[in-house]
Structure formats: C-alpha cells, structure tokens
Amino acid sequence: MSEFLKISGRRIVLVLALIALWMLLSGYWNKATLVAFGAFSVAVTLWFSERAEIVDREGVPTSIFPRILTYMSWLLLEIGKANIIVAREVIRPQIKLAPKMIRVPADQPSDLTRTIFANSVTLTPGTVTVDVREDCLLIHALDEKLADVEGIAEMGAKCTRLESGRGA
C-alpha cells in the first residue's frame, strides 16, 4: 500500500511538472482547444512513460529535489574555476600538456548519485569520465594539476550526501 502511494506520488509530480512545462512553453491559458490539446499531450507522455516503465526512483528523483540546488550552485563555481585553467592551456603558444588516466573511488550506494557524480566530473572541464566501473570511475585528466584524486573524491562524497541527508 505504501509502495503504491509512493509510486502514485511520483506520478502526480510528473504530471504537475509536465503541465507546468506545457504552460511555460506555450503561454496559452484561456483558449479551450489549445488547452485540451495540451492535456492530451500530457496524457500521452504519461502513458508512454508508464509503458517504458521509467516512472521510478531514477526517472522522477523526488528524494534529492531540495538539496540539488545548493549542489548545483557549488558545481557552477567549480566549473568556472576549472574552465579558466583549461582556457589557459589552450591559448598557450606551445602546447604543454601532461594528460593522465586516474581512478577515483566511487562508493555511492545508488545509481542515481553515482550518475550525478560521473556527470559532474564530466561537466567540469579538464576531467572526463571515460568508464564507470563497480567501485571506481576511470577519468581522463588534461593535466597533472587537474588530476587530484582527493578533490574529485570529495565531490563524490558531496554527491553521496545528496540522497542520504546530512550524515555520512
């Protein structure tokens, strides 16, 4: 019973998000035909996602909604800092790179937080996740000073905390 309630809660969130998206993109509030078509497209999208069985913890990750915002603003700052390093490497007259493959432990319990971690590493310039393995990520780093395992592992710890709350 509680399982069913949880899942239908996700469904309600999905429907509300789709309606909000349609309203924002179209901007029609009072034309009956268009609103009917909008409701129809929301229903079709809901049917498709039921059919593909993607309305679950990963498709509609309600558990991380409030905390992801602070994480994203922190991540944007990191991206800015790393970008300047990479841009300096690009405009150096003589190319002087020391690329490196590193392995960073990724012990996130859920696939969702691990995906967020791998994507954050890729989003930060200078490090690209090449392979995701059972317990670690294989990362290609552009330079020695961008390849600090501790810094990236700390980013991974932040991602773990996204789901489990303040602890751990």
Partner: peptide, 10 residues
Amino acid sequence: THAAGVTDTL
C-alpha cells in the same frame, strides 16, 4: 574532449 567541454559549459 576537454577543449570542447569549455565551449559546452562556460
């Protein structure tokens, strides 16, 4: 890929 990432993000 790193250089292309500069364009895609910042």
